[in-house]
């Protein structure tokens, strides 16, 4: 392993946050080793303008696959273009995001590279020239450490597990061009329609702050405090399984074993008792605040701050207090 490779996620011509995180992770592994380089593959159309930014964020090598046919390329096309290039580079470690895009590509790329996959890593290290990753398993109930023992591994890194380091504009990088073979970009998948869901302003998976409500809110029409506090904190709205099953909230907001796993900087649980199935979906959050009338509820044991009382009284008072301090003004 001489280069740690990553793949840029680009949307609307800009790098997504996960790309900063992956470059930060790769850069710190490379710096710790003293000998490894950081390479990033950027694939799309008219993306050459991103090269200086990728360099400043930590890439030593920027490999560009730039062609009209690569705009919004589906996973099979990405694998067909990037796979042979990384094979040629004898890539042994490839970091992707544990995101929709990363998960779509990870398995296909690992097949191409005849290597393994370590999914949903929260910590990375290089030991004896091999990538070692810590991941949470069983929905966060336990952790395990996995090492790439054979030909290396594609590692998907949990979003927000890494705090992105600021760029260094003075850093320079070497640019490579990936040749795009005829026929390798043939589309077999066609997007017919894309409907952005508008009910939540912040998407749950990307959110730095999540405000979630449970059965303790009291009813579908009593989620006002959840939404108000989410607006004030710029947070995404989440829900427990109980309220989704009761039809109070849509499934896309469900957090826990049968919903989403989230790991925001701040998680605020309102009227959630904290069944184990819920806890496994949020226990890796940075700070957990729970507001519940039951001081003995399980959520109160995992919370950093457990506020005992009625959510319908405390939350409006909290929002008022925060807005007095200028938080959420104009939101």
């Amino acid at each position: 392993m001489s280069t740690i490779w990553t793949l840029a996620e680009i949307e609307g011509g800009e790098l997504k946050g996960i790309t900063h995180e992956l470059l930060t992770a790769a850069r710190s592994l490379a710096d710790a080793s003293g000998s490894l380089k950081v390479g990033i593959v950027a694939l799309g159309h008219e993306i050459g303008g991103l090269v200086p930014q990728l360099g400043s964020l930590g890439a030593d090598i920027v490999a560009l696959a730039d062609a009209p046919s690569l705009a919004n390329a589906p996973a099979d096309v990405v694998a067909r273009v990037v796979g042979p290039f990384l094979q040629g580079q004898q890539a042994r470690t490839v970091l992707l995001g544990h995101t929709a895009t990363g998960k779509d590509i990870a398995g296909r790329l690992a097949v191409r590279l005849d290597c393994g996959v370590i999914a949903d890593a929260t910590e990375l290290a290089v030991e004896g020239g091999k990538i070692v990753a810590t991941r949470s398993i069983f929905g966060g109930g336990m952790w395990s450490r996995a090492v790439a023992a054979g030909n290396g591994a594609v590692v998907t890194v949990r979003p927000r597990a890494v705090t992105p380091a600021p760029g260094q504009p003075s850093r320079s990088s070497e640019t490579l061009t990936i040749s795009v073979a005829d026929g390798s970009t043939t589309r077999r998948v066609e997007t017919l329609e894309l409907k952005q869901e508008t009910s939540t302003t912040v998407s749950l998976g990307d959110a730095e702050v999540v405000v979630a409500g449970g059965r303790g809110m009291g009813g579908a029409d009593k989620f006002g405090p959840v939404e108000t506090l989410a607006r004030t904190l710029g947070a995404a709205v989440g829900a427990s399984r109980a309220v989704v099953d009761s039809g109070w909230r849509p499934h896309k907001e469900q957090i826990g074993q049968t919903g989403r796993t989230v790991s925001p900087k701040l998680y605020v649980a309102l009227g959630i008792s904290g069944a184990i199935q819920h806890l496994v979906g949020m226990r890796t959050s940075g700070t957990i605040i729970a507001i519940n009338s039951d001081a003995e509820a399980p959520i109160m044991k995992v919370a950093n701050v457990a506020a005992v009382g009625d959510v319908h009284e405390i939350v409006p008072a909290l929002v008022a207090e925060l807005s007095r301090q200028g938080v959420g003004a104009g939101a």
Partner: peptide, 22 residues
């Protein structure tokens, strides 16, 4: 062939005790 080996596993670290507000 196995490409990934699990070398260790365990329970997540306990969080510091909750600060209770009443």
């Amino acid at each position: 062939a196995r490409q990934v080996l699990v070398t260790a596993a365990g329970e997540p670290p306990q969080r510091p005790a909750s600060q209770v507000l009443t």
